[in-house]
Design a protein around this nucleic acid. Sequence first.
DNA 1: CCAGCCCCCTGTCGGC
DNA 2: TGCCGACAGGGGGCTG
Length: 282
Amino acid sequence: MPELPEVETVVRGLRTPLIGRTARDIWHDWARTIRPTPIAPDPAHFAARIAGQTFRAIERRAKYILCHLDDDILVVHLKMTGRLYVTPDDAIHDADRWVHFRVQLDGGVQLRFSDARKFGFVALTDDFSRLAPALGPEPLADTYNIEALRAGLHGHRKAIKALLLDQAFVAGVGNIYADESLHDAKIHPLRASDSLNDDEIAHLHAAIRRALTDGIEREGASVNWYRKPDGTSGKAQQYFHVYDRAGEPCLTCGTPIEKIRVAQRGTHYCPVCQPTPTLLKG
DNA sequence: CCAGCCCCCTGTCGGC
DNA sequence: TGCCGACAGGGGGCTG
């Protein structure tokens, strides 16, 4: 479940082993792992186009990894179970049976994309905006202040949890950090997004940024599949207040954490710290 | 505009 | 122990 902190950690971990390397060829064993683009509509075009291009910079936008090459961008989305790492050519392939895409690099190393559930993808593009859907503001950007959050809320009337998961509302927040942010802000996940008062908006703004910043500092949450590029686990899961803690005591008040479904996602909250709204519609 | 559902996939786990 | 259904959830798409 790589979200903003996990993707950011992967990006940071890839810079040293990847920047300066030149691509030679690619390999894949699952067609849908490679998303077609105008400049690389199939694996043969992809291979011909990437060959000879050097990795110059790596950045994150929302949950996308953007590897800037000389002319193009290698875009990767990890979705649920994706892993991306650089490894020596001769590293035992069987050690990771879910590798579906590799880029052969110079220097005897490979960039490998592993994805057990095959939801993720790689793509070679010269226009990221055409590849990705409309993405909302980066929540950790200096420009994402309370007013930016309030502006995003305007015109919406749906459960706040569902809105937090909407990448057009705010980019990079997923199920884990949405639950953690709402608990920190003491807001029930089913609260109508247009019912938040000024104090709650301010608290939610701070909570989102705190959850994501802490997540990055802890190098992401390794609940099951996520790993850093060096293969080790993140530590953010050790600090969850509500996510994956159904039935366990709230760290604030001791009440058992409850789990419901909101927007088709498992949603965890404290019924005392985050009181149930009396009106969901009205 | 929004809630709900399906789909893409496969590993894991609880129940029988 | 083995089988089976439920569940995990990022994101696109469709329907009511």
